[in-house]
Design a protein around this nucleic acid. Sequence first.
RNA 1: GGGCUUGUAGCCUAGUCUGGAAGGGCGUAAGACUCCUAAUCUUAAGAUCGAGGGUUCAAAUCCCUCCAAGUCCGCCA
Length: 566
Amino acid sequence: MYFEIEKQAIDALNKALDQYDEDIDRNFRLDFPPDPKLGDLASTIAFALTKKLKTSPNLVAEDLVSKIEVPDIFEKVQNFGPYVNFFIDYSKFSKLLLEKVDEDYGKLEKRDEKIILEHTSANPNGPLHIGHVRNSIFGDSLARLLKTAGREVETQYYVNDMGRQIAIIVYGIKEMGLKIEDQKGDKIDEKIGKLYFLANKEVEENESADEKVSELIQKYEEGNDEELNKTFENVVESCVSGIRETLKRMHIIHDKFVWEGQFIRNGDVDELVNYFEKEGFVSHEDVDYIDLKFYNIEKEFVLRRSNGTSLYSTRDLAYHRYKASLGDLVLDILGSDHKLSAEQIKVIFEEILKEKAPEVIFYEFITLPEGSMSTRKGKFISVDDLIDEAILRASDEIKSRNPDLSDEEIEPMAEKIGIGAIRFFIAKLSPEKHLTFKWDEALSFERGCASIQYAHARACKLLNKSGKNISSLKIDENWTPNEAEKDLVRLIAKFPQVIEDCADKKRVHNITQYCQDLAGSFNKFYKSEQVIGSDVEDTRLILVDRAKTTIKNALDILGVPAPEKM
RNA sequence: GGGCUUGUAGCCUAGUCUGGAAGGGCGUAAGACUCCUAAUCUUAAGAUCGAGGGUUCAAAUCCCUCCAAGUCCGCCA
């Protein structure tokens, strides 16, 4: 709704500007004023005119206001100092808006753009830990956001089956006689993580073990040892299955799992290296590498080890070409430790391959108060533990508030609230901020996600209690919204704009702020206005229903479930 | 040493791209359930936007210098 209204306001402003006979930049946008008391849309265009007219911005704004023909949907235009502000006529606007909100509210027009979004892609050498989860939650929320904003999105998990880490696990199985099923842990990925920790210790302390690992890598890459292949594949498949379970609990599902090994076997890696070779980009020392100094990157890009095997980075290049062939835009979510390698890939794509480079969104790390996490050192909090703890705390919270509920009733509620708390906590921070993980901050049920879910549950309760069929209700023709209602209408109306803005910037954290504002506004309305039994009961029920839908749709972008009961 | 990122009330944070009215939340203080769930609401106090300089009618935002924290600079991924 704001799209149409903003356009009307801009048109009206432009018409007024036409009367000045001054050449000023018409490519302006309207802002939201800091306070609703100052109106609904604001323009700073008076500043631009000030210079030309040689008066004060306040006078220009005043003069502009007198020249503006106020469009019908607005109540008035008024200047506050230099700002020219439009006030929406809420008795007209609210009705129009509420009639427009349906279950698809917030979905933008389809665009002809397919995005391949890679996220999570954690090494299958142990369970997901809370460092990885930022990648997963941000990636999944972004995928949901972009889909809502009309893009076609395919999400991929890149499975590193050829890495040294996996070879170390295979070493543990083959040479140290370790068995996955003997390790401690409830899930297979956890057991593999334990085995990895033990094998890695041996490899670090024992040079011949280290050599043996390199041999395993070489053999697996050659691919002729069927039994060895099976061992590698079994480790990776098992671990990935555990990781998938964890992701599923967080409502994260990837469209595709792409194994890096396929790019060796299908010849893509060889083809790529040969191309670089043929074009004269490859230098040879112990290793084959591309010198990137010419492109201001000090670190060379190694293509093959001295024993001829490929590296992650080589295979990653082939993978990125594959992704580029599938869509219009390739998006990667990566930890900020990948910045240099991502820069290398960008340069290789743009300067050498002359192809469009992938777009990368980086996030900073989550660390524990005692330091950074490490699968290798076995020092981490797993996502499974985080989820268990979140659900446990949510369950206790529900019990203390609703002592009469049975365990069967509590369980699904606790799951929704616990998962919501985690996803919201991670999603609300902009990705470039470093985060130190603290249980009590992560799993808070006051003022965080739970209060938004609570607003949704309250709305559901009201609608149920009314006993009316909402779709058959009509908005009262004489209804003039009061302040609390206006406020709520305003926030509901903003939703598509928020989606567009966030999708363009590829940021999800502003959605969390929006959810909080919307829920806050609903709670305020709920507190101050009686719905059932009021003169405008039907109209208010419609408003409640639309608020409910908007909260649900907004939470859905964050992958947070909207419970009907709390 | 070089590159990148971060620095906004006691604490966490949005806003920085595209300069224009410092926005949330926690915590603190005071208040609100005989009334659709108090996981809620109301009110208040709290910010020289890391420091210094520059550009501009106007700087948290742009430019320069410096300080602090994180991170990268592997034949790891």
